[in-house]
């Protein structure tokens, strides 16, 4: 167990620091922004697409199961990333338009 911890200490540090950072970073969000923030976070976890690309890129060209599943994963991951950022941007566009007119 101790061995395992010291072997993987990099990961453990990253996980712990990211948990606190994630909490700290959005700690003071006004409720107005809850929906766009959720949508933005939704787009960011689309980073899972990188895993899908690696799966796809590693699949042997005669392994059809892996090719098809990987292909689906790439499509779904891209949907998550692109759709997520575009929807968030559309929500926020309205806030911005408002601000500019005020000044």
């Amino acid at each position: 167990m101790l061995n395992w911890i010291s072997e993987n200490q990099q990961y453990i540090y990253i996980v712990i620091l990211m948990i606190f950072l994630g909490i700290e970073v959005i700690g003071r969000v006004p409720s107005v922004l809850h929906t766009p923030l959720m949508s933005g976070a939704n787009a960011i976890h689309g980073v899972v697409i990188i895993g899908a690309i690696i799966v796809m890129g590693k699949a042997e060209s005669n392994n059809y199961v892996a090719l098809i599943l990987g292909f689906l994963a790439v499509i779904l991951g891209t949907l998550n990333v692109v759709g997520g950022f575009v929807v968030t941007n559309r929500m926020l566009e309205m806030f911005k338009g408002k601000k500019e007119k005020k000044h």
């Binding site: 990211m18 948990i19 606190f20 950072l21 994630g22 970073v25 959005i26 976070a41 939704n42 980073v47």
Partner: peptide, 8 residues
Amino acid sequence: GGILVGAA
């Protein structure tokens, strides 16, 4: 990215 979104 994943842990950040998980925590936030």
